[in-house]
């Protein structure tokens, strides 16, 4: 699985000749990964998010999955050069971490938790792609504005396509994030008896949610698109990364177990 991921990155970087191969490889990798996660699920009896290794592995898996979905919907091949290395990077980090599972915690066994984890991860994967698209948008915009058509001009798609894709990514991500938060609330209610416990992770997730909500709101009302939307997508993803790692490492809270080393 990991070697496939490595190949994918390699192939995608030269994607002009090998985009097709890269796409098939990432699809194959995704399927293997699915099987592997399914195996872990069956073996441990619960969703494999015990430690940072497994969490990251799931993150890589969802990004690949969401990428495949968007590729299918928008035919935006170029996104692979962002998605594939990202997946590879995550998988490489995951492989460097100890993979011994911690003792299974009974509170982890709930359908709401599984739903919570899956939706949150899908949302975050969409945002990751939105960030990638936003980045590509900025590059392409810069080439057009500076009138210096170099390497990227021919290879990147039109600004409008990048913008609509980024928007679609954010809408999808926002929907998933909302669902994830809701399932999280329900799960929290069932375990701790309250919806909201001012856990730092919860607070930061709330901030992320508000940020994207603001972005979508601005787009719908005053038409925030193009450059500003792209920058916001990148900032949004930075906040997500902080919520994902920073909060767990720097602050304490009941989400800590997922990133235990």
């Amino acid at each position: 699985m990991l070697s496939t991921a490595g190949y994918i990155a390699y192939l995608f970087l030269q994607k002009n000749y090998l985009q097709q191969t890269g796409f098939y490889l990432i699809s194959a990798g995704f399927l293997c990964h699915t099987a592997w996660i399914g195996y872990g699920f069956v073996q441990s009896g619960h969703f494999p998010v015990d430690n940072l290794h497994q969490t990251l592995s799931i993150a890589g898996w969802t990004i690949a999955g969401v990428f495949l979905l968007f590729h299918y919907g928008f035919h935006l091949k170029i996104l692979g050069i962002f998605a594939a290395p990202l997946v590879t990077l995550i998988m490489v980090i995951a492989s460097r971490l100890p993979s011994a599972p911690h003792k299974a915690d009974s509170i982890l066994n709930s359908i709401w938790l599984v739903a919570h984890v899956i939706t949150i991860f899908m949302g975050e994967a969409s945002f990751a792609l939105a960030c990638g698209v936003g980045f590509l948008y900025l590059v392409q915009e810069h080439t057009i504005k500076s009138k210096n058509h170099g390497f990227f001009f021919k290879r990147l798609p039109s600004l409008e396509l990048l913008d609509t894709t980024g928007y679609a990514c954010i809408v999808a991500g926002f929907t998933m994030l909302t669902l994830g938060l809701v399932t999280g609330f329900i799960y929290a209610k069932s375990v701790w008896g309250r919806f909201w416990s001012w856990d730092p992770k919860e607070v930061w997730s709330g901030i992320t949610w508000l940020l994207y909500a603001a972005l979508l709101h601005q787009r719908l009302t005053v038409g925030w698109r193009g450059r500003r939307a792209a920058i916001m997508a990148i900032i949004g993803f930075a906040v997500i990364l902080f919520t994902f790692f920073g909060v767990n490492f720097l602050l304490q809270g009941h989400h800590g177990g997922f990133t235990k080393l």
């Binding site: 392409q140 057009i144 001009f153 798609p157 039109s158 600004l159 409008e160 396509l161």
Partner: peptide, 9 residues
């Protein structure tokens, strides 16, 4: 051709 890079279609 430039317009195509901005608008797509």
């Amino acid at each position: 051709e430039l317009g195509r890079k901005i608008f797509g279609a």
